[in-house]
Structure formats: structure tokens, C-alpha cells
Amino acid sequence: MHPNDPLRPPLLEHRSLLWLVAGISAAFTVVIWPFIGAVLWAIFIAIVFQPLHRRVLAQVGYRPNTGALLSLLLILIIVILPLIMVTVSIVQEVSVLVQKVRSGQINLGLMVRGVFDAVPEWARNILERFGLDNLQGLLDQLATLLASSGQAIATRLLGIGTYTLDFVLGLFVMLYVLFFLLRDGRTLSRRIALAIPLKERQSDRLLTQFATVVRATVKGNIAIALVQGTLGGLAFWMLGLPGPLLWGGVMALASLIPAVGAALVWVPVAIWMVSSGQLWQAVVLTLWGTLVIGLVDNFLRPILVGKDTRMPDYLVLVSTLGGLSMFGINGFVMGPVVAAMFLVAWNLLTTLRRQQAVEE
């Protein structure tokens, strides 16, 4: 048919193609959605370990398959297997803790009551004003639930650490996708840059910022979380508190939340220690949490992250909390990445409008 056929104008064909691409992309997203977490983490890990892969590739003579396989093995040994082992140990510790609660060796109701009694009067008034004065009763019910549920509750709370079919399948998908991302990463990034309907300079800036934010967020947040969780668990172990590995893992997860961090765990424990008469232990934990755990973020984040993200602290906080709410554990990366892409997109639009204003 003639290219100037009025029944098929170029503009209509172009728009139809765009709608077709958008529709098929949406359908593809629905298809892979059950494994979206595995795919995202494969992308994140490939971006973070790209410098390592380049070194491995240089050592093997730039053989793509061999280099990707060796890089994958290194990532598996250095990162993934240790995390799986720690997670399994945490699950086992949760099981022991639940058994102690069931047998009465640990009375969570008394512990909660002690913390509530140690709260100042003005703080109690605030809790009563917001209808939270019965918090003790709610936590007592939680303790009863934990005591009666046993091993099943512990397993479900940390389902990622159990060897279920979903976990094994997700891990396989992540490693499989990661291999091809390491091998074909540069080719894929060039194809994506060409497919984005922007100028080459704008596409490069967008993809560069995406990789920078992912690398800074994953590298900085995970490293800081591991250090703070380790220090917190060490403090709990030295003070003879039950479940130090478990609470270290909880503090590592809590440290992913900006402005709150590991204090969400050790502050209530310090208050409980004061209420139970363990004054010097409470002082040691408070000093350790404030001077050691709390300052880790201030020292390590500039070194590991630097100014790569270039986002205000309030935006990091809101985007991280929103990402965790929307995407679960993947959200601590997805949230800041979406926020950074939001800033980059608006900056690109602002720059383009300024250039058009100057030309006019």
C-alpha cells in the first residue's frame, strides 16, 4: 500500500504502535508480576556489582559467558549464601523464643507492663488522649497469641527463611536473570536508551541516574543495616538478653527506615531495663545505641552513598516509607529510585522549557 494512503496516515500508525507497545508491556508486567521481586533484585544486584563484573571480565579475557558465571558464583558466595544462612539461624532463634514464651520462661505481659509503668505521666496522658492507653492489654493479647500458636507463627513471620517452593523458585529466577543481566547488561542498556522516546543525552542522563540511585541505595542502606544490626545484636548478647540474633535482624530491618532506625528496637528495651531495675544495663545499652549504633549512619552513609542520590532527607524518608508500604521489603530501594526518577524527569522538563524559551 502507498505510504501516503489517507486511510493509514503516519501519525495514526505511530500512535497505534505506541498504544500497542504500552498494552503489551502492561500484559508482560502482569505475566511476570509473581516474580517481580526476584527480577527487581536481579536488576539491583547486577547494577551494584557491575564494577566487580568488569574486573572479572578483564581477568578471563572478556569472555562473556565465563565472566558472567564467575561473577554470579562470587555474588552467590559473598552475599546470597551468607544472608540465607543468617536468615535460617534467625528462624531457629524465633522458634526457641516462641517455645520459651509458651513454657512461661519469658513473660511478655510482665515485660510490657514494666515498660508501660516506666513511661512518664505526661506520656501516658498523650497515649490516653489518642486512645492508646490500653496498649498494654493489646500487647498482652499478642503475647497470648504467640504462646498458643507455636512454630507455625514463627515460620510465617519469617517465611523468606523457610525452604518453601516459592522461595526456592524465586531464588532460581533471580540467579537465572542475574546471569543474563551480567552477560548482556551493556547491550540491554543501549537498547533501552534507544527505545526511550527522548533525545540521546536525556536518555543517557535518565539511565545513569537510575543506576546511580540503585547503586547508592542498595550499597549504602544494606551495608549500614548490616552494621547496625550486628552492633545491636552484639549489645543484646553481651547484656544477656534473649534472642540477640533475632533482635539484631529486627534492628537491621528497622535501620532501613530513615529518622527512626534501630532505636525503634533498643529504646523500648532500655525502658524495660529501667523498669525492671537493670539500671546499669539500661545505661550501657543507651550509650551504645546512641554513640555507636546511632552514629554509624552519620559516618558510613557519606562514605558509601556520598552525594550520589542528591535528594533531600525528607524526600528520602517519605519515599522509603511509601516504598515499603507499597512494595514490601523491595520498597526501600524502589521508593528512593522512583523519587529520584521523579526529580530527574522534572529537571529534564524544566531544562527543555528553558531552552525553548531562550530560542523563542
Rank of each mutant, 00 (worst) to 15 (best):
D204N: 13
M174L: 13
V79T: 07
M238R: 13
S16A: 13
G240A: 02
N134K: 12
P3F: 02
R183N: 00
Q136H: 10
S276P: 02
V274E: 00
P3W: 03
G137C: 00
V296W: 02
V60K: 04
L231S: 00
Q356F: 05
T162Y: 08
R201T: 13
A58L: 09
L81C: 06
V60F: 06
L317N: 03
M273W: 08
V31S: 01
L7R: 15
V316C: 00
V344Y: 01
V96M: 10
L231F: 04
L138Y: 14
N107Q: 02
R190T: 08
D166K: 09
L295G: 00
L72P: 02
A339F: 02
T164P: 00
L73C: 10
G220Y: 06
L264D: 01
A42S: 15
P64Q: 05
W288S: 01
L81F: 11
L145T: 12
N221G: 03
N107G: 00
F28A: 15
I80Q: 09
A262G: 05
R191Q: 12
E93F: 06
G335R: 03
I84H: 06
I271D: 00
M311F: 07
L198G: 02
L348M: 09
P3L: 03
G220P: 05
V39K: 05
R129L: 13
G37E: 08
V168H: 03
L207S: 02
L349Y: 11
A223I: 14
L74C: 10
L343H: 05
G109I: 04
P34R: 08
A118L: 07
A46K: 05
L181V: 11
G322W: 04
M273D: 04
T87K: 10
A68W: 03
N134F: 07
F130Q: 07
V227H: 04
I257M: 08
A118D: 13
L287V: 15
L69A: 15
F167T: 09
T351N: 12
L348H: 04
S189D: 07
L226E: 00
R205C: 03
S255M: 09
Q59S: 12
G61R: 07
V79C: 07
W272P: 01
Y62L: 13
L349I: 10
T309I: 15
Q281A: 14
A42V: 04
A225F: 04
V101K: 08
T320H: 08
W288V: 01
T208S: 14
G249Q: 08
L76M: 09
Q92M: 10
V86A: 14
G137P: 01
R63V: 10
P82S: 06
L352D: 15
Q50R: 14
A68E: 04
L349F: 07
T162W: 10
F342E: 01
L18M: 12
T230S: 14
F180G: 03
L97P: 04
Q151D: 04
L181Q: 05
S276N: 10
M273S: 06
G229A: 10
V177S: 01
G150L: 11
L83F: 10
P9T: 12
L207V: 05
A154M: 09
R102A: 14
M273I: 06
M174N: 04
A252W: 01
V31N: 01
A143F: 09
V305R: 05
F130W: 14
P9V: 11
T290G: 02
N330G: 09
V338D: 00
S189C: 01
N65T: 15
V115M: 14
